[in-house]
Nucleic acid binder design. Structure first.
Length: 566
RNA sequence: GCAGGCGUAGUGUAGUCUGGCAGCACAAGGGCCUUCCAAGCCCUUAGCCCGGGUUCAAAUCCCGGCGCCUGCACCA
């Protein structure tokens, strides 16, 4: 076998050589944390995302949206990213360790967040704070932003989104209306997000610009959870207490380990990754420790895949509560609430204050209208005169200036801020994990193979003439055209020996190779070779488009095809 | 950002210490040959991370930058 470091080098090698991914802006020396997807990688990504949409959007009837990556400052002030994603750091001059200034000052200064870097530096000096590790002298205070900032137009500050989610939250009122005011409501978005990592390492696993696919599921926290959507397939879990257990989504929910919708998504994600070619025993779901939770989350389970670098987070499922909608409601003033209809209309007695304008008018002149409106807002009346506040002043309204009416009011429901369950997929990490876990070296020859599931394979079919002469090449080109016209991503290769062409195909995970040989000219059949078994079967040419599409959908298995060769 | 290591065709490497024509293998392209798993032969394409300095002469020595790797720190 290979060592862990080997496999990474091998993936990077094959990725660059065959056009899956490579470091971006290479001719200018590259930029850490930025990568290009090449022709194979871009197709692989597209196929994975298509499958994602199929699984998580179509199957559950969610809505897909596409919001800008660039947003105004207010959005990220509201979301909390501006506060939580930027810190003042200070570094020790002798041992080099970096510390968050607010941590160092928390015992000395009440609100370190409100100070400028210069003031923070002064505070550090004033209190004689030194390096907690080695007692060395601390250096300059530097601001550290995890968000990329830019300018919108001439003077407006803008940020590149650190997650796609906010583009959904800010649109909640519109989306809720489009969804005809029904919950649960699921909204999905695929797009790039940006984080200015200090020091991105680990290749495509930690990038500054990366691809996400997110679902925001808006729910009524008081609505009963539809248990019947949970199945009983056992899923490996690692709880906050460090316990490794294998229980089903249904059990996880019933035991109270997690809320129902997290259990639901854990099961769906587990199935999704298996479809992508990740072995079951390489997948687990790990619950975040309390201190590990993001600022918006009350519970998070990460889906982790075991690759050469250890368990790696590829998807997070967070219970975001009503945090985001609440924050946007507060900052924007927009109504982010949903309406919860009661089972039956309720009749409640309400107290209504009805101002008598003929008395109020002469009494308060110009402010009478404002006072009247404020009186109407009052819900509880306990007798006597009323005190009403208008524009910061308190007015006393005598009893004779209003009537108190008890009325029966019909109430059909109430407003509340929905809670959000968010499964968030890191597409680039998923792609990398697939590459590592589908990578295979043939034991006899050492030739490299990427065993992509047919569904996500960038190239479905290679078409080869056995010999590039005697009309075999023309016939193969015709077949290529037929396949392409029926929507199959196929390519043609006549260079080198047939074995070399198979090997080339294996490296980019082409599941099937078709060879046009001398018999093809006579009876219109070709051989089709399966990547993983390297076995060949002979099938009629005109059935190929149908058969390949059927195999892609797992409706037909390779060994059910035509007749075996040799 | 710090410390250490490294950077040579698409990929992997030799050459760097001790300055003097940049070599090999694989891959790729063309040709010959070849009737199903990287065969062989001929030809071709293609490289010293970037910038500056020292020197008659720099892949090689020095300085700066960039990138990668490892560790520290940071990290939904």
């Amino acid at each position: 076998m290979w060592t862990m470091k080997d496999i990474r080098a091998k993936i990077n090698d094959i990725a660059k050589r065959r056009g899956i991914f490579w470091g971006a802006y290479e001719i200018y020396g590259g930029v850490a944390g930025l990568y290009d997807y090449g022709p194979i990688g871009a197709m692989l990504k597209k196929n994975i995302l298509d499958l994602w949409v199929e699984e998580f959007v179509f199957k559950d009837g969610l809505m897909l949206v596409d919001a800008p990556a660039l947003g105004p400052e207010m959005v990220y002030r509201a979301s909390g990213h501006l506060d939580k994603f930027s810190d003042y750091m200070v570094q020790c001059k002798s041992c080099g360790h970096a510390f968050r200034v607010d941590e160092l000052l928390k015992d000395f200064v009440e609100v370190p967040d409100e100070l400028t870097p210069q003031e923070l530096e002064r505070e550090i000096k004033r209190h004689g704070i030194r390096c907690p590790d080695c007692n060395g002298e601390l250096g300059k205070v530097e601001e550290f932003h995890l968000m990329f900032s830019t300018r919108i137009g001439l003077d407006k500050i803008g940020f590149l989104r650190p997650e796609t989610a906010q583009g959904i939250f800010v649109n909640f009122p519109t989306l809720y209306r489009i969804n005809r005011e029904k919950l649960p409501m699921g909204v999905a978005q695929i797009g790039r997000a940006y984080r200015n990592e200090i020091s991105p390492r680990q290749g495509v696993l930690r990038q500054r610009e990366f691809n996400m696919a997110e679902v925001e599921l808006f729910i009524d926290p008081e609505a009963p959870f539809p248990e019947n959507i949970l199945d009983d397939i056992a899923i490996p879990l690692l709880t906050r207490e460090g316990e490794n257990i294998k229980i089903s989504a249904l059990e996880a929910y019933k035991s109270g380990l997690m809320v129902g919708y997290i259990a639901y998504y854990i099961a769906r994600i587990f199935e999704f990754f298996k479809k992508l070619g990740i072995p079951e025993d390489r997948i687990r779901f790990r619950q975040h420790h309390r201190g590990e939770l993001a600022h918006y989350s009350s519970d998070t389970w990460d889906c982790e895949i075991l690759i050469s670098r250890g368990w790696t987070e590829v998807t997070g499922i967070s219970y975001r509560t009503s945090y985001d909608l609440e924050r946007h409601m507060l900052h924007s003033g927009a109504d982010m609430r949903a309406f919860r209809r009661f089972d039956e209309e309720r009749e409640i007695e309400v107290t209504r204050i009805v101002p008598r304008m003929e008395i109020l008018g002469p009494m308060f002149k110009g402010t009478a209208m404002k006072i009247a409106r404020a009186m109407e807002e009052i819900e509880h009346y306990s007798g006597g005169e009323l005190k009403v506040e208008v524009d910061g002043k308190t007015y006393t309204v005598p009893e004779e200036a209003f009537e108190v009416r008890k009325e029966n009011k019909k109430v059909s429901g109430e407003r509340f801020i929905p809670h959000v369950i968010e499964p968030s997929f890191g597409i680039d990490r998923i792609i990398y994990a697939i590459l590592e876990l589908t990578y295979y070296e043939r034991p006899d020859s050492g030739y490299k193979v990427l065993r992509f599931p047919t569904k996500i394979a960038p190239m479905k079919v290679g078409v080869f003439p056995l010999m590039a002469k005697d009309g075999l090449d023309e016939r193969a080109r015709e077949l290529l055209k037929t396949l392409r016209n029926s929507g199959i991503h196929a390519y043609y290769d006549e260079s080198g020996s047939i074995g070399r062409r198979y090997a080339r195909a294996d490296e980019i995970g082409v599941p099937f190779c078709i060879t046009v040989d001398y018999q093809s000219i006579e009876d219109e059949t070709v051989t089709i070779r399966e990547r993983d078994s390297t076995e060949q079967r002979r099938v009629p040419m005109k059935e190929l488009p149908r058969l390949i599409r059927a195999m892609e959908r797992d409706e037909v298995k390779f060994d059910e095809l035509g007749t075996p060769v040799q």
